[in-house]
Simulated assay, not measured.
Amino acid sequence: MDVVATDVGFYGGLRCIGERFEIADEKDLGSWMEKVGESKPKQEKAKPGQKPAAKPEEKPEDNLPDA
């Protein structure tokens, strides 16, 4: 199965982000890989001390914690 590394990982050797390679079976598919041709929308991670971005269907003030 043809996959691409979405993060650094190890499969038969160290793999770098964006590296395309073959895995023996779908059960070997790691969380840091995705099948070629099946891209998922990327979620941005909040930086420490920063609140997460509002979802498109929310107004920014909707995701604030209750005071």
Rank of each mutant, 00 (worst) to 15 (best):
F21V: 03
K35M: 08
E34C: 15
E34I: 14
C16H: 15
V36A: 06
E19W: 05
G18V: 06
V8I: 14
V36Y: 01
R20W: 02
S31A: 10
G9C: 14
Y11W: 09
C16I: 15
G13E: 10
E19K: 01
G30Y: 06
E22T: 07
G9K: 07
W32A: 04
D7G: 03
S31N: 07
E26L: 14
W32N: 07
R15Y: 05
E22K: 10
A24W: 11
E22W: 08
A24S: 14
G12L: 11
R20T: 05
E22A: 12
G9T: 11
E34Y: 12
E26M: 12
D28K: 04
G9W: 08
A24C: 10
K35N: 08
I23N: 01
Y11F: 13
V36E: 02
R15W: 05
K27G: 05
A24I: 07
E34H: 15
K27V: 09
F21S: 01
I17W: 06
V36I: 11
R20N: 04
L14A: 07
K27F: 09
D28P: 00
E22L: 13
D7E: 11
G9Q: 07
L14R: 11
M33W: 01
D25I: 13
G30D: 10
E19D: 12
A24F: 11
R20M: 07
F10A: 09
V36D: 02
E22M: 12
D28Q: 04
G9M: 13
